Simulated scan of single mutants.
Amino acid sequence: MTMSLDSAAEVFRAAMRETVKRYSLWYLIQGALLVVAGFLAIIYPILSSVAVIIMLGWLLIISGVAQGISLVGARHVPHFWLQLISVILAFLIGFLFLRDPAQGLLTVTLLLIVFFMIEGISKIVFALTIRPFPYWGWVLASGLIGVLLSLVLWASLPVTALWLVGLLLGIQLISVGGALARLAWQVRRSPAT
């Protein structure tokens, strides 16, 4: 049995709507937590920027240690030396981030540009998928804000201030959290279909 593209798209949208409805409480909780985290990042932008860099540093160190453990006794694995160099780099860069978080600002800024862009595009696609669901426009606006924030960071790259990263991270968190919470609240209030 063949299904038209429009029919398949409607089936997919219906499945997405049902999933959002089924997990609306979790979306509401997630949205509220993201909004709170966003306000904290805006109130303390330098602290949130440094926290992101420190967290990234620890993640690199932990991944380096985990990869290093997996290489123990694997000297005959193809490309062993390349993997060992990767382990050393992860550990070294993580250590440098922890030693002086301000020096890791450019790297973190580039990572946030990628994160905001991908997060924004995924929210735009999600919003267009659940359209004409009530308040789908909030999710679309959240995605557009993510793309806009990535462009603002890109434009300010040579002189990105430590506080700007935290401020834009806070705006993104509030945008995503507010959109999710509004969508979940509306779904919870809507009658069962």
Rank of each mutant, 00 (worst) to 15 (best):
I85Q: 13
I93V: 11
I69H: 08
Q67N: 11
G68V: 14
G57N: 11
S49W: 00
I88V: 15
H76T: 12
I46H: 02
L60V: 02
R75D: 08
I61H: 01
I62Y: 05
S49N: 10
I53F: 03
F80H: 13
L92K: 06
L47N: 09
L34G: 04
Y27D: 06
F39C: 00
L47D: 09
G68H: 03
L84I: 05
G31D: 05
V77I: 10
L71Q: 11
I61F: 05
S48V: 03
L25F: 11
S63R: 13
V20G: 01
H79I: 01
I43Q: 11
L82M: 15
A37T: 02
A37E: 04
V35K: 00
L71R: 09
I46P: 00
V77R: 15
I62R: 04
Y23R: 01
L28P: 00
L33E: 04
V72N: 02
I93L: 09
H79P: 03
L28E: 04
A51W: 06
G64R: 10
M55Y: 10
L34I: 05
L84P: 01
L71A: 10
I53P: 00
L47W: 08
Y23N: 10
Y27E: 07
I46N: 01
L25K: 11
F95L: 07
I53T: 01
S63W: 14
W58M: 12
L89G: 08
G68D: 11
Y44K: 04
L28D: 02
A41H: 01
S49K: 05
V52F: 15
V87G: 03
L34F: 07
G73V: 09
L28M: 11
F95Q: 04
M55I: 07
W81H: 08
V50S: 06
G64D: 10
I61P: 00
G68N: 07
L60G: 08
F39D: 00
Q30V: 10
L92N: 03
R75M: 06
Y27I: 02
V65G: 07
I43Y: 10
V36I: 15
V20S: 01
Q30T: 14
G68Q: 10
W81M: 09
R22P: 04
G38F: 05
S70E: 11
S49E: 06
A66R: 14
Y44C: 00
R22A: 14
K21L: 12
K21T: 12
R75E: 14
G31F: 00
I53L: 03
W26C: 04
I46L: 07
L59M: 15
L34M: 14
Y23C: 00
I46D: 04
F91Y: 09
Q83L: 12
W81D: 13
G73Y: 06
I69D: 05
S63V: 05
F91H: 03
S63P: 03
Y44R: 08
I43D: 15
V35A: 12
I93A: 03
L25T: 12
Q30P: 03
V87H: 06
L47M: 14
Q67F: 08
G57L: 09
W81T: 15
P45I: 08
S86I: 06
S63H: 08
